[in-house]
């Protein structure tokens, strides 16, 4: 892991936190052990300002144009997008399943809400993920404390607002402890309407 200090250049607008982009891709037939998950995930940029964010974001492929089984992650600098990371181990995530064709727009909107500190839950947000799959795409937002009900409810309600979700949208929550137990990101979730 290389250590580098990302600074805010003069004239640019600082973000509340620094964030790192990650990309992962795997063969769906292979079970996702922690070991090969770590091998298949790569970070490709850290941003500290609004302008730095756009410089990277504008040059990466839109998630809706990806094929196969891949994920983009944008996480606070220092937090690995892994269930076992110190910042994630007591946490969980909200999941929104998207029909094909919506991922790029929703991904951009959830990122802008996170970078702009729209969730108002202190240090709770860890990062966001867009997961490209065959039948559907999945948007997730990870927070630090799965049993902090105030924060999880506020994150859910903010998501509904910033993504402009229809009121009947199904929202699912899964703790990372449960994901570790059944070695699955998106199965056996708790469903809220």
């Amino acid at each position: 892991q290389k250590v580098k200090e990302v600074m805010v250049p003069p004239g640019e607008h600082p973000l509340q936190y620094k964030y790192t982009f990650w990309y992962s891709r795997r063969t769906p037939s292979r079970p996702a052990s922690t070991h090969n998950y770590e091998q298949n995930i790569r970070q490709f940029g850290t941003v500290a300002s609004v302008e730095q964010f756009w410089r990277i974001y504008s040059h990466i492929v839109r998630p809706g144009d990806l094929t196969g089984y891949s994920d983009f992650h944008l996480f606070k600098d220092g937090i690995k997008p892994m269930w076992e990371d110190e910042a994630n181990k007591n946490g969980g995530k909200w999941i929104i399943r998207l029909r094909k064709g919506l991922a790029s727009r929703f991904w951009e909107n959830i990122i802008l809400a996170m970078l702009g500190e729209q969730f108002m839950v202190g240090e709770e947000i860890c990062g966001v993920v867009v997961s490209i799959r065959f039948q559907e795409d999945i948007l997730s937002i990870w927070n630090k404390t799965a049993n902090d009900q105030f924060s999880t409810v506020r994150i859910r309600d903010t998501l509904r607002r910033v993504l402009n979700l229809p009121p009947n949208t199904i929202m699912e929550y899964k703790t990372h402890t449960d994901s570790l137990k059944d070695n699955s990101s998106f199965r056996n979730t708790k469903i809220t309407v």
């Binding site: 640019e12 909107n109 802008l112 500190e117």
Partner: peptide
């Protein structure tokens, strides 16, 4: 301390700034 909050429009407007190219 104070938090740095930006709304969606502010962030989108910065996208076309020469600094963001």
């Amino acid at each position: 301390g104070t938090r740095i909050i930006y709304d969606r429009k502010f962030l989108l407007d910065r996208r076309n700034s020469p600094l963001a190219q």
